[in-house]
Every structure is written in C-alpha cells, then in structure tokens.
Amino acid sequence: MISKHNREAMLTELYKSAFPAVAKYISKMGGSFDDAKDIFQDALVIYYEKAIAGDAAVANKRAYLVGIAKHLWLKKFNAAILSTSLNDLPVDIIQTVDEQVSANKVLQYLQTAGKRCMDLLSAFYYDKLPMKDVAGLFGYSGERSVTVQKYKCLEKVRETVKQQSLSYADFIE
C-alpha cells in the first residue's frame, strides 16, 4: 500500500510533468484552459483508480496519463460535434473567431514586429490597399518588394507567437 505522503508526491509530480502537455494539446484542438483543467483532473482520477487496482503498471506514467487525457478530450470533442446542429452554428465564422480572439493580445504580437510593419500590414489588411498603392505609400520599388516585406513582417509576428505560446506562466492563474 502506498503511504498518503507518497501518493501526494506522486500525484503532484504527475501534475507538474503531464499537465503542460495536456494543456498544449487541448489548446491546439480548440479547447480552453478550463477544458484542459477539467480533462486533466478526470484523467488523473482514472489513472489513480487504475494504479490502486494494480492495472497501471506502465513504464512511463506521464505518457500514460497524457494518453488518457487525449482520449477523454477526443471523446468530449467528438460528442460535442455530434450533438451540434448545423442550425446552431454561427453564420459568420470569421465574426465568431474575432470575438474569441483577444484584440489586445493580437495587437501586442503585431507591435513586436515594429511600427513600420504594423503600418504596412494595416494598409494591406485593414485599409485593403492594392500592393501598387502600398509600394508607393511606403517608398518601395515595386509590388514584389512590398510582398517580400509583408512576408517578413508576418514571419516576425509568427516567431513571436511561437516563442510565447504556452509558456509556464500560461498555466498559472
């Protein structure tokens, strides 16, 4: 029989080692942080019950726990999809996505690329100016130069998002 102290230490270690992977997976699959916490708690209970029953004699406890959580998420995700009527889905998907994305966070990511990049991206995406007009406005030699610069700006933003996505601080409330 495992002592109470050892059980708590084991569960704490599993939480620290496995929860970030579960949260990252659920985030990629469209879930929220609260979804990740709920799914992880359920997975931990299942794992603990199997461990007490002697069924969980696996070499990698973390991988086993993450596998349980992924299975639970897919089960929940598929059930939600199957129970959603097409009439319940929003007509304007872009508007729905825009409401879910924090405008401040997006703005922060864009600001990391610099003012010139923000102005260029704003002119192209927000003002919907043609490449030729953007080239003249920003002093580029042609449309190709604007296209290359726009790509570089977007890559700066993508790199920032990659570097900052799901850091340890994202898991602390």
Rank of each mutant, 00 (worst) to 15 (best):
76 K>V: 10
145 S>D: 01
108 Q>E: 05
136 G>M: 10
122 S>P: 06
3 S>E: 04
166 L>F: 15
56 A>G: 08
47 Y>W: 06
96 T>Q: 13
162 K>H: 13
88 D>E: 13
126 Y>T: 05
12 T>I: 09
121 L>C: 03
31 G>H: 11
82 L>K: 14
5 H>C: 12
100 Q>C: 10
28 K>S: 11
55 D>I: 05
16 K>M: 12
111 Q>F: 06
167 S>H: 15
64 Y>S: 11
95 Q>S: 10
152 K>D: 12
30 G>V: 00
109 Y>M: 06
67 G>E: 03
16 K>N: 10
104 N>Q: 08
79 A>I: 03
35 D>Q: 03
119 D>N: 09
41 Q>C: 08
168 Y>N: 02
71 H>E: 11
40 F>E: 02
67 G>H: 02
168 Y>L: 09
147 T>V: 05
152 K>W: 10
118 M>H: 07
166 L>G: 04
13 E>P: 04
102 S>Q: 07
164 Q>M: 13
136 G>H: 04
5 H>F: 13
144 R>Q: 11
68 I>P: 03
19 F>K: 03
72 L>Y: 01
144 R>A: 14
15 Y>F: 14
54 G>K: 06
115 K>I: 06
127 D>L: 00
57 A>P: 09
67 G>M: 04
152 K>G: 01
15 Y>C: 11
94 I>G: 10
29 M>D: 00
152 K>Q: 10
23 A>Q: 02
78 N>H: 03
36 A>H: 10
139 G>F: 05
112 T>M: 07
144 R>C: 08
105 K>R: 14
160 T>Y: 09
171 F>A: 02
95 Q>W: 12
28 K>H: 13
173 E>L: 15
57 A>S: 14
165 S>V: 15
143 E>Y: 02
116 R>L: 07
19 F>E: 03
101 V>C: 15
165 S>G: 12
100 Q>H: 13
12 T>V: 09
23 A>W: 06
16 K>Y: 10
146 V>T: 04
44 L>C: 06
88 D>R: 01
34 D>M: 12
170 D>N: 13
5 H>Y: 14
4 K>A: 14
167 S>K: 15
34 D>Y: 12
128 K>T: 02
114 G>I: 04
159 E>N: 06
71 H>Y: 02
168 Y>D: 04
74 L>M: 05
37 K>P: 00
61 K>H: 14
19 F>H: 04
138 F>L: 10
49 E>R: 01
155 E>P: 01
171 F>W: 09
44 L>D: 05
170 D>M: 12
154 L>K: 08
2 I>D: 08
160 T>C: 13
151 Y>I: 06
62 R>Y: 03
146 V>E: 03
120 L>Y: 02
106 V>S: 09
87 N>S: 12
122 S>W: 15
134 V>C: 15
118 M>L: 06
23 A>M: 00
86 L>I: 11
77 F>S: 00
66 V>A: 03
147 T>W: 00
61 K>L: 07
61 K>M: 10
112 T>R: 06
102 S>V: 10
